[in-house]
Amino acid sequence: MGKGTTELVDLLVLLGMGAVLPLGLALIDEPGLARVRRLWPLAAVPGALSLWLPRGGLATGCALLYALGTLLVALHAPLRLARTRSLAAAEVAVLTALTAPSVAGVALVAERSGYPLFGFEPHILALTVPHFHYAGFTAALIAGLVCRADHGSRPARCAALSVPAGTLLVLAGYFLGDWWQFAGAVVLSAGMWLVGLISWRELRPRTADRATARLLAASSAVLALTMLLALWWALGRAAGLPHPTLTWMAATHGLGNALGFALCAVLAWRRITTTVETHR
């Protein structure tokens, strides 16, 4: 990756670490996460600092503190499963959201140290970090929330299961080849398009708050384009066809998903949950 692309990816990771992830954690009704959210700056600040330090011991140490924070979040997944004893579609999505940041945290430690984890070069690991903040964490979380809000309808259940499955297939593609990544992109895109469609057609009209409706509309509309770009890139890689460069993907797919989908979606759901709590 060029310097400009690396800086843009780092900015997207900063947004994920400092805003999207803590806002998203506040939407998960899990005992114990409130303390994690209060202590989150102890992980996010060194994590952000690691991105601006040159690769080496100090950057690795800062990244390790962030990784420990993500592992603390991931520990709530088995605790939640033991408490709820549920593998309903919405729960699968939430469990995925809890575990996904730890993949990003481990990748960040390896990338900042310059270690080729599982044989992957640092630039691949650097792209893994934002992917598991946004596709892994935010997309799965929003899919789970949408599934609950739509009362577990069949499309909503499909979305809540497709997003985790697609993310897992994309991860498998790192090891099994480009066609697996393309399959993951297809499944993930289908799930995200369902999330956007349900948010636009079912949830947006229900909200009386204009700002919330606009945030839901923005997050839904952005997905139509950004996930199409993901399919184009994955198919081009697998089939040897012309496809966007990583620089172009970071500036379009990455920036659109981070700002247009993830940030808008978590802000919309924050307003929705605040309204529900106020009227209890």
Results as ranks from 00 to 15, higher is better:
214 R>C: 02
15 L>P: 05
48 A>H: 04
24 G>E: 09
143 A>Y: 04
217 A>F: 14
178 D>R: 15
53 L>Y: 13
275 T>C: 05
182 F>G: 00
170 V>H: 02
21 L>Y: 05
112 R>S: 04
165 A>E: 00
68 L>F: 07
56 G>C: 10
61 G>C: 08
72 L>A: 15
176 L>C: 10
91 E>G: 03
216 L>A: 04
14 L>P: 01
113 S>W: 14
243 H>K: 09
187 V>P: 07
265 A>P: 09
234 A>K: 01
211 A>I: 11
33 L>F: 10
16 G>E: 07
77 A>I: 07
181 Q>G: 15
205 P>W: 06
81 L>A: 12
211 A>W: 12
192 M>V: 00
199 S>R: 01
167 T>P: 00
78 P>A: 05
24 G>C: 07
5 T>E: 12
209 D>I: 00
39 L>I: 08
235 L>D: 03
260 G>L: 02
93 A>F: 08
90 A>M: 01
85 R>M: 04
35 R>Y: 01
91 E>H: 13
2 G>K: 09
173 G>R: 06
166 G>F: 08
150 D>L: 03
158 C>N: 00
243 H>E: 12
219 S>H: 14
88 A>V: 08
61 G>Q: 07
199 S>D: 01
271 R>P: 13
132 F>V: 08
90 A>D: 15
30 E>L: 13
101 P>K: 07
250 A>H: 06
98 L>N: 10
222 V>D: 06
68 L>M: 12
195 V>R: 05
257 N>A: 09
271 R>Y: 12
74 A>L: 10
259 L>P: 05
158 C>Y: 11
46 P>E: 07
150 D>H: 10
227 M>E: 14
63 A>F: 12
144 G>S: 05
103 V>H: 03
198 I>E: 10
48 A>N: 02
215 L>V: 06
99 T>C: 15
163 V>M: 03
259 L>A: 13
192 M>A: 03
233 W>H: 12
206 R>D: 02
88 A>C: 01
243 H>R: 14
166 G>C: 11
158 C>P: 00
229 L>K: 00
208 A>G: 15
226 T>A: 10
120 F>M: 14
120 F>N: 02
89 A>S: 15
213 A>E: 08
192 M>S: 01
194 L>T: 10
67 A>H: 04
198 I>W: 04
255 L>C: 04
192 M>I: 00
241 L>F: 15
223 L>E: 09
